[in-house]
Design a protein around this nucleic acid. Sequence first.
DNA 1: AAAAAAC
Length: 549
Amino acid sequence: MNPYDLRFADPSSYHDRRSDLTVAPTFAPPAPVAAANLNPYAAAYPLPVPVPVPAAPAGGDYQRYGQGGRGRDGLDSLALPKPDFRSLIPFEKNFYVECPSVQAMSEADVAQYRRLRDITIEGRDVPKPVRYFQEANFPDYCMQAIAKSGFVEPTPIQSQGWPMALKGRDLIGIAQTGSGKTLSYLLPGLVHVGAQPRLEQGDGPIVLILAPTRELAVQIQEESTKFGSYSRTRSTCVYGGAPKGPQIRDLRRGVEIVIATPGRLIDMLEAGHTNLRRVTYLVLDEADRMLDMGFEPQIRKIVAQIRPDRQTLYWSATWPREVEALARQFLQNPYKVIIGSPELKANHSIQQIVEVISDHEKYPRLSKLLSDLMDGSRILIFFQTKKDCDKITRQLRMDGWPALSIHGDKAQAERDYVLAEFKSGKSPIMAATDVAARGLDVKDIKCVINYDFPTTLEDYIHRIGRTGRAGASGTAFTFFTHANAKFSRNLVKILREAGQVVNPALESMSRSSNSTGGGNFRSRGRGGFGNRGHMSGSNTFPLGGRRPY
DNA sequence: AAAAAAC
């Protein structure tokens, strides 16, 4: 029996769990693949032979799968029927060949290497880390790109993540942004593309990368274009707020790699401009945000279009317990690699200063900070709301500061302009909502100021991570008010872990606060507060008092 | 009680 046979015991009960697959460990000689597209290292391993798959039963079955969507957000139109995965042909997995010098590493050497770089691993048959680019066994088209980039050695996440991803296995990768995460999945993605038959007319992408904001998607595509050029791998970015025409043209012309934000991709799928039948390498970047309340249904809808035997890679700087069960639904027997402490952890090269103040002291303090800090280098200020973000930006500009504001209610053209002005240093102060909290890679941000404390500690870690990137140092100032007391205990923990001096005012708050460490992932809507109707009763005692947690 | 993501 073919190991990649995608028939299900009972197709009508199919619910997108790969445990449904019938997988038998039978391998046969490689299938012929166009020489130019062949991963040279795949030749060392036998590949499965495509066997003719019985034609899908006509009409009826296919139609039936598409009906009865599960979403609650109006996304489930009949325009996106569930694909008939049974008619899909096998694809080539990545086959990592450990090079001799890696093979020669003793277990003690491996343990030492991981310990020194703070690498924690989980999973069965974990490959040894690669210490040098040459050890990763990348094909030439990757090595040329690396050589051109000027990098000297793999970052910790790359040294362990590459051999894992190159084995064709699912992967959970947890590391700070700026630690080389993007290349950790991009290069194995290029190798994966290289092993597949060429795209044919009407084929959608082979690699799909999903990101939570438009700016992040664009940034990933810039890397992808740069590193893919040596293998003439085409990529395009599909995101909202921009004209559809060029995106449609790219999709119809055929691109191996698509980087997308969920909404526009679903739009494109429903309009039939592309399809995900050939996607066999799926990346969720900043994945804990992708599985956030508002995003999860969209992600489910997209993933339902992708064959279940794909390789899936989950990346984030944080790994909240609350998403673990959710994330594992999308992954099959994953490796896990964590850089740094498995606990919520900030980048140690950032100096974190928390100031306990009241709301009316915030603006004067901000003015003073800017006067002290401003030397032309970049300063990023975070706000809780779009309204405050705009309001304070206006105030700053009236006071003569070169500040611009970015958030999700602004036209994409303005977002692009503001980010470009900030990146170029023409406007060195950027005020932002959490749209800019994750993954954005702007060089030389001197300091981050949290004008408002974020909604979760994960967001705190992401926000301050905009500074101190790629080994540079940086400073994060955080205005902390009594309204934020519930975060104080865990914030102190984060500061301690990062070796920071803890503000005594914050510390005394953390001692007197009866918090459980609030700000848990998606704490809203989980029977916390702010629920509607009868659900809110679950949080109160019969006598009407708050449950004491 | 916020932000993001499609028209």
